[in-house]
Simulated assay, not measured.
Amino acid sequence: MIRKLDRDFLQVSVVEGSTTVVVDEASLDVIKGINFILPYTVKKYQIFGVANFVVSHI
């Protein structure tokens, strides 16, 4: 599923599981304990896999 970023940014912490985050042509494999930021310049992203997140935004 393609998701649209409608916030200034997303601060994402993976608290369980593993997943792949795809932005444009780049992909990042993330596992429990990894944190990442999706800035406002990212308009659309995809997440594949099974994981639980804590997501912060303004």
Rank of each mutant, 00 (worst) to 15 (best):
Met1Arg: 06
Met1His: 12
Arg3Ser: 09
Leu5Lys: 07
Asp6Lys: 14
Phe9Ala: 06
Phe9Asp: 02
Leu10Lys: 11
Leu10Asp: 10
Leu10Pro: 07
Gln11Cys: 06
Val12Pro: 11
Val15Gly: 08
Thr20Ala: 11
Thr20Pro: 06
Val21Gln: 05
Val21Ser: 04
Val22Ser: 09
Val22Leu: 09
Asp24Val: 03
Glu25Ser: 11
Glu25Arg: 14
Ala26Asp: 14
Ala26Pro: 01
Ser27Gln: 08
Ser27Ile: 01
Ser27Leu: 06
Leu28Asp: 04
Asp29Glu: 13
Val30Leu: 11
Ile31Met: 05
Ile31Tyr: 07
Lys32Ala: 09
Lys32Leu: 05
Gly33Leu: 13
Ile34Gln: 12
Ile34His: 14
Asn35Ser: 12
Phe36Thr: 05
Leu38Gly: 03
Pro39Asp: 08
Tyr40Trp: 07
Tyr40Leu: 06
Tyr40Val: 03
Val42Ala: 03
Lys43Cys: 02
Lys43Leu: 07
Lys43Pro: 00
Lys44Gln: 12
Tyr45Thr: 07
Tyr45Gln: 03
Tyr45Leu: 09
Tyr45Val: 04
Ile47Gln: 07
Ile47Thr: 12
Phe48Asn: 10
Phe48Cys: 04
Gly49Met: 01
Gly49Pro: 09
Val50Glu: 14
Val50Ile: 04
Ala51Asn: 02
Asn52Thr: 03
Asn52Leu: 02
Phe53Ser: 01
Val54Asn: 03
Val54Ala: 00
Val54Thr: 03
Ser56Arg: 03
His57Thr: 10
Ile58Ser: 06
